[in-house]
């Protein structure tokens, strides 16, 4: 493939295919490491592979930048330097992990809670679009505190209500931040 056509491929379909390929490398590395003798370093090695893949992805993507230059200096020079550096450093870390000289992965904590928290955040963001900021923020504080194990109903209501009042007074009124009122309410009212 000629250099010119490769650049246009990177600037075109490569923008989707290359990140997917990098993600694929990371997933394959994760699957391989967890079944290998180095399984206790799975997280560390996968992260180092991800950093290496990120460096490689950034380097390849620079090929798609327009070839404009001024006095021999173009926009690709510095990102290429950083991506090469990232690849070299990540490879050094990867070697430490693969040779088993690293410390084992930290113990898994309550990842279920983290995932539920992320789900709550996604719901909050969807909620902001539909029912507006104030209702979804109040419900989020309430649900998040319950998820984390807080049980006092008075404290829960005070905290959620306090946050809604605070964000309304300080951000909406004082700082004039246009917080979304939600599609539902803007249609009704």
């Amino acid at each position: 493939m000629a250099v010119g056509s490769f650049s246009s491929w990177v600037a075109g379909p490569g923008q989707v295919i290359l990140p997917l390929a990098a993600a694929g490398i990371v997933v394959v590395a994760w699957l391989l490491v967890r079944r290998s003798l180095n399984w206790q370093f799975t997280g560390r090695i996968t992260l180092d592979v991800a950093l290496l893949a990120l460096g490689l992805l950034a380097f390849v993507l620079t090929a798609g930048f327009p070839t404009m230059s001024f006095k021999g200096v173009d926009a690709r020079m510095v990102p290429r330097v950083w991506s090469i550096l990232l690849m070299v450093l990540a490879a050094a870390r990867l070697a430490i992990g693969l040779l088993g000289k690293d410390v084992p992965d930290p113990k898994k904590g309550r990842l279920d809670k983290v995932l539920l928290l992320l789900a709550l955040l996604v719901l909050k963001i969807i909620g902001i679009t539909w029912v507006g900021y104030f209702i979804s923020a109040g419900l989020f504080v309430l649900a998040c505190a319950i998820l984390l194990g807080y049980k006092n109903p008075v404290g829960l209501i005070a905290c959620a209500g306090g946050w809604v009042a605070f964000s309304y007074l300080v951000f909406y009124k004082l700082l004039s931040v246009p917080l979304p009122t939600g599609v539902l309410f803007s249609t009704i009212f």
């Binding site: 923008q15 950093l51 930048f65 404009m68 001024f70 173009d74 950083w82 991506s83 990232l86 430490i96």
Partner: peptide, 30 residues
């Protein structure tokens, strides 16, 4: 080594967006 990786990652992140000298779009994915 981890510090250096962190810093280089930050440097790479700083290159996202319009290049301030030539106005070239970098890592923006459109």
């Amino acid at each position: 080594l981890k510090c250096a990786i962190s810093a280089v990652l930050g440097l790479l992140i700083s290159t996202v967006g319009m290049d301030s000298i030539l106005g070239v779009s970098r890592f923006t994915f459109g």
